[in-house]
């Protein structure tokens, strides 16, 4: 049960073996993806034909490496742009929300808080279609009444940003609120007492205290936006994000260039994830 309670050696070993098997299960898929990115073969499969960097570097035409695959490169840039927007917006709104729910008092606060949490329990697909519907309703109404076609409300990157922002904001709110709850408000009062206005007090004292959480929330938001698929699927226009591009090539049969890009993603997300961890938050949502 716990180390202080005597337990038969075989039971302890059995338990440790189970945990070991679990980690094998956890890492096997990633390991094969990474290793096969270096296989000198046209297919992401065994047998091992020897080591090659072709799937990273080859300019084509038979083998197109990652650095020369325009589709994947474009997807990567698109995803990064979207993720930056989502991270910025959701941390900004999440910070306001944290102050709203931790420091302000107003009628129906609990109800609004419950509503703010719901995006986490709405399936991503549903968020995607409802935002698709509503934006096209609004676009239709604007066109009907004003006669202006609003391009941003049709499937495309602005909608993708909004769709991802709609639920990632809840997470940013939770991360930042958790830190703000630990904030000693008398520090802010001391700043007010020393002549600062509330805005200045928040800017100079509270936000500085929140900085690790802001960084952590931004890292989590960036990661989740970058890899989002279910919500994005319905909102994406002609510029596909990386997961969408990869989905199509994986579904229709891929070359090991997908392994190469996956390996790059693993390294990148591990780096960003560690920023998130060391800013004091663990956990995320796809």
């Amino acid at each position: 049960m716990i180390p202080s309670i005597p337990q038969a050696a075989y039971a302890r070993r059995l338990y440790a073996t189970y945990v070991g098997a679990f980690f094998l299960y956890l890492f096997a898929p990633l390991a094969v993806v990474a290793v096969l990115g270096f296989n000198d073969s046209l297919f992401p499969a065994l047998p091992w034909e020897g080591f090659t960097l072709d799937w990273f570097l080859s300019p084509g035409p038979r083998r197109v490496g990652l650095l020369h695959d325009q589709g994947l490169l474009r997807g990567m840039v698109t995803s990064a742009q979207v993720a930056l927007w989502v991270a910025g917006l959701s941390v900004a709104v999440g910070t306001c929300n944290a102050f709203l729910f931790e420091q302000e008092e107003f009628p129906l606060k609990q109800a609004l808080y419950a509503l703010a949490l719901t995006p986490l329990v709405i399936p991503g697909v549903i968020l995607g279609i409802s935002i698709l519907l509503f934006s096209s309703t609004v676009a239709g109404a604007i066109e009907h009444w004003i006669g202006v076609e609003v391009e941003a409300l049709r499937p495309g990157l602005p909608l993708v940003v909004l769709g991802q922002f709609s639920f990632i904001t809840t997470l940013a709110t939770l991360i930042i609120s958790a830190r703000l709850r630990k904030f000693d408000r008398s520090l802010e009062e001391a700043a007010l007492n020393l002549g600062a206005s509330r805005a200045v007090a928040i800017w100079t004292v509270t936000l500085r205290f929140l900085r690790p959480a802001l960084l952590g929330a931004a890292a989590v938001a960036f990661l989740m936006s970058f890899e989002n698929f279910n919500t994005t699927l319905f909102l994406v226009g002609s510029d596909a994000t990386l997961p969408i591009t990869m989905f199509i090539s994986v579904r229709d049969g891929s070359t090991p260039v997908i392994n190469a890009v996956s390996l790059l993603l693993m390294v990148g997300s591990a780096g960003i994830g560690l920023i998130g961890i060391f800013s004091g938050f663990e956990g995320k949502r796809p």
Partner: peptide, 10 residues
């Protein structure tokens, strides 16, 4: 932290 797509691909 890696995309769900990569995990499923694995």
């Amino acid at each position: 932290w890696v995309s769900e797509l990569v995990r499923v691909y694995g």
